[in-house]
């Protein structure tokens, strides 16, 4: 029963979502929105689990005197400060929370992601070799798309690189993307059906105990 009831619960929730999609009845729409709110509420509780995992990882590092344990204090203290201001003073503009977000989180996030530009360039230099038609095609298209995104190619008058890169994006690249999307959609439908019918149970694992 410890497994059957959750499977039945998942099936009922999923079956309702499928039915409401095809039946345009206002009451079903109302319940649909209510169930979405319920999922958001449960997700909020689930966030605590994630935070617990983060804390446990850092506390374990501190306890075991890991070589970098001092930085775990940085993570925990920065969490505590941001969380304190966010919960008690709100998240509106012109609050301390907003100040930390704009002057610490946003620059850090943008810089960390911009750092990837260097690593991608380095990886591309080391691995990109035009050894076959396919590899050459990938390399040439990547270069054209990059050139199409920089303003300096405006000065090249004899060929419309911007226009060509847009065409590459909107026709051949879109065709490839659509082919992949069909496969993705079939995969989503198959996996979802497996979950609803209780064939796929990996998300229910880890609970342990009798009656699995």
């Amino acid at each position: 029963m410890r497994l059957q009831i959750p499977i039945a619960l998942g099936f009922l929730a999923g079956a309702f979502m499928i039915v409401q999609f095809f039946v345009p009845y206002y009451a079903l729409q109302m319940y649909y929105e209510q169930l979405l709110d319920w999922a958001i509420i449960i997700g909020a509780f689930a966030l605590v689990l994630g935070l617990g995992s983060l804390f446990r990882s850092h506390i374990d590092k501190i306890r075991s005197r890991h070589p970098d344990y001092i930085y775990s204090f940085v993570a925990l203290i920065s969490f505590a400060v941001m969380f304190f201001f966010g919960i008690f003073y709100g998240v509106n503009p012109r609050t301390t929370f907003d100040w930390i977000f704009n002057n610490i989180q946003v620059p850090l996030e943008a810089t960390v992601f911009s750092l990837l530009a260097f690593f991608m360039a380095s990886a591309a230099y080391r691995t990109f070799r035009a050894r076959s038609v396919e590899a050459t095609l990938l390399l040439v298209v990547a270069v054209i798309i990059m050139l199409g995104r920089v303003p300096i190619t405006d000065y090249i008058k004899f060929v419309d690189i911007h226009g060509f890169s847009e065409w590459l994006m909107s026709i051949p690249a879109t065709a490839a993307k659509r082919g992949i999307l069909f496969g993705v959609a079939l995969g989503i439908v198959a996996t979802s059906l497996r979950i609803l019918l209780g064939i796929e149970r990996s998300h229910l694992g880890g609970g342990g105990g009798a009656g699995r």
Partner: peptide
């Protein structure tokens, strides 16, 4: 621990049911 399966199954079922027609 088995109690945590209920909310997970509910959310997964909801997401699965939502994604089939929309996909």
């Amino acid at each position: 621990q088995w109690l945590s399966r209920w909310p997970i199954a509910f959310v997964m079922g909801l997401g699965a049911g939502l994604s089939i027609p929309r996909s």
